[in-house]
Computed example of a mutant assay.
Amino acid sequence: MSLAGSQAAPGAPVRGRPRSEAVERAIMDGVMGLLEDGVPLAELSIERIARTAGVGKATIYRRWSGKEELFADVVRAAEPPDPVLPGTSLRDDLVALMEQMRQRALVTRSSALLHNVYAQMKSSPKIWAAYQATVVDRRRRLQIEVLRRGQRNGELRGDMDLDLLNDILLGPMLVRSVMRPEADLPDGLSEQIVDAILEGLRPAGARTGRQARTARQS
């Protein structure tokens, strides 16, 4: 896992050299450059990456525990950034999360490099596990927290299994992105999915997303 977010406790002695975003960027750009040149993931060693980036191997190991975690960070950096949640309603937050998935699918479709990298990652259990742990699981925790907040705010029925509900919400976008690569991913699809699912999941008497928007405009 990248050490980019680690910080020393107040008053603790500082060990090692200060982090350098420029160095991290050079390392990650070096990996991406090698992949663009057609070097398979399996043939990318830390030594080769260090030589390409113009740094020592120890510099890489200070930031990542191994190449699996480094690859996960490289792929995450190539994807659209995580959304800034509006925080105005459950519906708005879910649309923002879904839209990030749609944009990610569009980027993957248009990038032969990313498509190839994903395929190679899935063929390497260690690399795929690192991507799941540092990227996918983190996103899923955020999605579950958004749903949990919706329950607390009375926007969502309290008897729902949130883990199952999250799968139900993500399913349509994943089907179009992965199982139906020829399917359209048009503007407005995120809103369509969220509105269609939430209509049947709100507590009795709660306004629908359409009703709430109409009321705000009146």
Rank of each mutant, 00 (worst) to 15 (best):
D167L: 14
T52W: 11
Q192M: 15
A105T: 02
V136G: 10
V194N: 02
G16K: 04
S124D: 11
E36I: 09
V175N: 14
I49S: 02
K122F: 15
M1H: 05
P80L: 12
L147N: 00
S6G: 11
E68H: 11
S190A: 15
D195G: 07
R15N: 10
R152Y: 13
R148G: 04
H115P: 12
Q192Y: 14
G209D: 08
I60E: 00
Q100A: 14
L97H: 01
G209N: 08
G66L: 00
A112L: 14
A105Y: 05
M98P: 03
P186M: 12
E68K: 03
R141N: 09
M101S: 05
A58D: 08
G30S: 07
I27W: 02
G66T: 03
R76T: 06
L35R: 00
T59D: 08
A133I: 00
G56P: 12
A9V: 12
R213A: 15
L106I: 12
D29K: 01
W64T: 00
S111L: 08
D92I: 03
V117A: 04
V117I: 11
V135S: 03
M179H: 15
L162P: 09
F71G: 02
R109Q: 02
I46C: 12
A215L: 10
G188E: 07
L3D: 14
D167H: 14
A129S: 04
G171Q: 13
A8F: 15
P83C: 15
V175K: 12
S89M: 03
R148Y: 05
A58H: 11
P13R: 01
A129F: 02
A58T: 09
F71W: 08
L90C: 06
P18W: 01
I127Y: 01
R213K: 15
V74H: 01
R140K: 11
P40Y: 00
V136R: 08
L198Q: 04
A4D: 08
Q151R: 09
P203S: 13
E21Q: 07
I60N: 01
D195Q: 08
K67C: 06
Y61Q: 11
A204V: 03
G200L: 08
A96F: 04
L156D: 06
D92Y: 06
Q7M: 09
L174C: 12
N153G: 12
